[in-house]
Simulated scan of single mutants.
Amino acid sequence: MNKLVGFIGTGSMGQTLVEALIRSKALRPSQILLSNRTRSKAESLAESHPGIRIAENNAELVRKADWVFLCVKPRDYRDVLDEIGGRAGKEQMIISITSPVMIRDLEAALPSKIAKIIPSITHAVLDGTCLFIPGSRLTLRDREELLNLLSAIGTPLEIDERHCRVASDLASCGPAFLARFLEQLARAAGEVTGLPRDTALLLIIRMALGTARMLTEGGFTLESLQERVAVPGGITRKGLDLLERELDPVLIRLFRLTHAKFVEDVEKVRQSLQGAGSKG
């Protein structure tokens, strides 16, 4: 792809995207232009990947870049859109990575082609799922080019925007949720039996890796794997029965919590974006 790609925001996920795209060779450092409120963060990323350029501000970045990834927090969108609104072009693609910022609001604020993606920390190892939600102005070629870029760092999956929150819970928040479960599994093992933490973590991480390979390469489903390990009346079956009783209510509460927070965030962002993008 022969485009200049800009990234507004080089925080955790912005940096992950930049480094994954370079590592996968989907983009050369010379194709990347950065802008960040704290310039030193952008400079640090540029120093690690010679060839990356840094814009003086967001407006300059939008003037120069063909595609622009918005990697900023919801509360910062109003300021960013006010900076770039008068400079964004109709043929330019603006890609938001922030779930509660809705496409219709971005299309109201900007004349550009709009898309939303929800990346995952797993892109750091060129794996995982990158959620893709196209805006109404994207052409077939736009979609193909963006999906081709995303496929270099993971598996892109197009979803309906109304499923953005739950899909994000699984693909983007999921690695943290799973890491917490595995951490607590190790902690509980140590508390009950005295098993050293290092030993427990080694066992759990290798188990998780092997389980993932069985599901992706070994022909197992989640259901068939459980059935293969658990025999009637055995230890594993008793453990699974306990998890079904005790864990299901927790997970239902988890999704209700994330969705309630999402609805709240969407409304806050929508109110803040009223009239955005008209400056400049």
Rank of each mutant, 00 (worst) to 15 (best):
M1K: 05
A42G: 14
E60G: 02
L254R: 04
F262E: 13
E161L: 03
I117T: 10
E246T: 14
S272C: 01
T10A: 00
T139F: 01
M102A: 13
E223F: 07
L146F: 04
V80E: 08
S136W: 03
L157I: 07
A200P: 09
S99A: 15
G233D: 05
R87W: 14
R104F: 03
L106V: 11
E183T: 14
F255A: 05
C71M: 11
T10D: 00
H163S: 14
A212M: 09
I94T: 12
D66R: 02
Q274I: 13
A186T: 09
I153E: 00
N57F: 04
V101C: 07
V266W: 07
A208F: 07
G218M: 09
L81W: 02
I121W: 02
I204M: 13
A65W: 02
A65R: 06
A59M: 06
I117W: 08
R39M: 11
L33M: 12
E144P: 03
M207Y: 06
R28V: 09
T139H: 00
A167N: 02
A230Q: 07
A208T: 10
S24T: 04
E217A: 13
M13A: 01
Y77V: 08
T129M: 09
S112Y: 02
G280K: 10
P50W: 07
A42P: 11
E145L: 12
I117V: 15
G194Y: 01
K3C: 09
K279D: 13
S272T: 03
R141N: 08
G128Y: 01
S224H: 10
R165G: 00
E183L: 11
P50R: 09
L209E: 14
I252S: 14
P111A: 12
A108F: 09
A179L: 11
A176R: 04
G89W: 00
E183A: 11
R237P: 02
L33Y: 00
E161R: 01
G154R: 01
Q226A: 15
L147A: 04
G14L: 05
G275E: 05
Q271M: 12
I103P: 07
R228M: 10
R213A: 12
V263T: 13
E191P: 08
D82I: 02
I159R: 06
H49S: 01
E267M: 03
I32C: 08
E60Q: 15
N57S: 11
L150D: 06
S99K: 12
V231C: 04
S44D: 12
D169F: 05
L243M: 15
D160F: 08
L201Q: 12
K238L: 13
P100S: 01
K113I: 11
R162V: 11
A59W: 05
A176Y: 09
K73T: 14
K279Y: 04
P29E: 07
A108Y: 03
E19Q: 15
P119R: 05
G239V: 10
G85P: 03
R143N: 08
R270N: 07
C130L: 14
A88S: 15
P100K: 04
S24G: 06
T199K: 13
Q274H: 07
T98W: 10
P175S: 06
A115C: 10
C130M: 12
T258N: 09
S278P: 00
